[in-house]
Design a protein around this nucleic acid. Structure first.
Length: 321
DNA sequence: GAAACGTGGCT
DNA sequence: TAGCCAAGTTT
């Protein structure tokens, strides 16, 4: 199936784009052609759900409306606006790339090949920006596209699909950005990992299977218990900064970590996962430890807090959102 | 090429 | 509940 004849390819494109025109979600980054805004959206969407991105995207663009504003901002300020979204390296690299462009007095590169040279932009993101913002016919392959193509290929051919080559052969060169987004939209809303809505699929006549899509076994998870202390009077709260050299979330701020857990019962317990570790998090009230800094809660929200610290402060009603 | 990188929502 | 998973990139 994946080697479609030309006539079948145009029917495929027509069907897919027709479906997309009628069913596309109205997302904030679909209301602009500004390449910088497309760029920000693509970085935020890496391994991150649409629903989680929307509010971050709006706030981030309000704070950093263009490349120049992002390049001039402190890294800490940029990270504060990313706080809670995860994969913080993305924010550092996005800012670094903006600074590279400003330093070279360059505008945004207009081709996938040039975009690929910027930090944080890999093969997927380069093609996404080039196709959506600059109409370059560069096909995108993300998890959604892979799943759609595997299903279309059918069981016998699934293992031998060259995703990038296949997607590139299928792409609509008149509407490359819409084609790419349509493939992803289909994977995200119809061709789901589990219980795909095959009845609603505009591509079913080209589909080789409706079987489950096998994915690689995720890395084994570990579990661990950690304790944090809430210390402060009135509007103040104690925070500590993670080492700049830490592998995980370097330089970000969090509640002071307890090295020995008290015997008495914690204020509360919650669960939190960070990459491959599942934490049981216990929180006690206590005195501010040495090395911690007293910060106004209102100020704290402007720091690059870890997502877990945000969660705890929300739980204590010390933080909104 | 595998592992690391964050988080929250859904089942 | 515990596990699964999301518009990937870097090392």
């Amino acid at each position: 199936m994946l080697a479609l004849k030309n006539s079948s390819k145009s029917a495929f494109r027509r069907r897919l784009l027709g479906w997309y025109d009628a069913n596309r979600r109205n997302l904030p980054w679909r209301q602009t052609r500004d390449p910088y805004k497309i760029w920000v959206s693509e970085i935020m969407l890496q391994q991150t759900r649409v629903a989680a991105v929307i509010e971050y995207y709006k706030r981030f663009l309000k704070a950093f409306p263009n490349i120049n504003a992002l390049a001039r901002a402190d890294e800490e300020t940029v990270l504060a606006h990313w706080s809670g979204l995860g994969y913080y390296r993305r924010a550092r690299m996005l800012r670094a790339a903006a600074q590279q462009l400003e330093a070279a007095k360059r505008e945004m590169p207009r081709t996938a090949g040039e975009l690929l040279e910027l930090p944080g932009i890999g093969r997927y993101t380069a093609a996404a920006i080039a196709s959506i913002a600059f109409r370059e016919p560069a096909a995108v392959v993300d998890g959604n596209v892979e799943r759609v193509l595997v299903r279309m290929a059918g069981e016998n051919e699934a293992d031998s699909v060259d995703f990038w080559t296949t997607a590139q052969e299928l792409i609509d060169t008149d509407r490359p950005g819409d084609f790419n987004q349509a493939m992803m939209e289909l994977g995200a809303t119809v061709c789901l990992p589990k219980n795909p809505a095959c009845g609603a699929c505009p591509l079913k006549q080209w589909c080789g299977t409706r079987g489950e899509h096998k994915t690689a076994k995720p890395a084994a998870r570990k579990t661990s218990t950690v304790g944090y202390v809430v210390a402060g009077h009135g509007p103040k709260i104690a925070l500590t900064q993670r080492p700049k050299t830490a592998r995980l979330m370097p330089g970000m701020w969090e509640l002071p970590l307890l090295h020995r857990l008290p015997r008495h019962a914690p204020l509360f317990t919650l669960r939190h996962s960070v990459t491959t570790t599942d934490y049981v998090v216990k929180v006690w009230r206590g005195r501010p430890p040495k090395g911690s800094v007293q910060s106004n809660v209102a100020q704290a929200s402007k720091l690059p807090l870890t997502g877990l610290t945000r969660k705890i402060l929300r739980r204590l009603s010390l933080l909104r959102d």
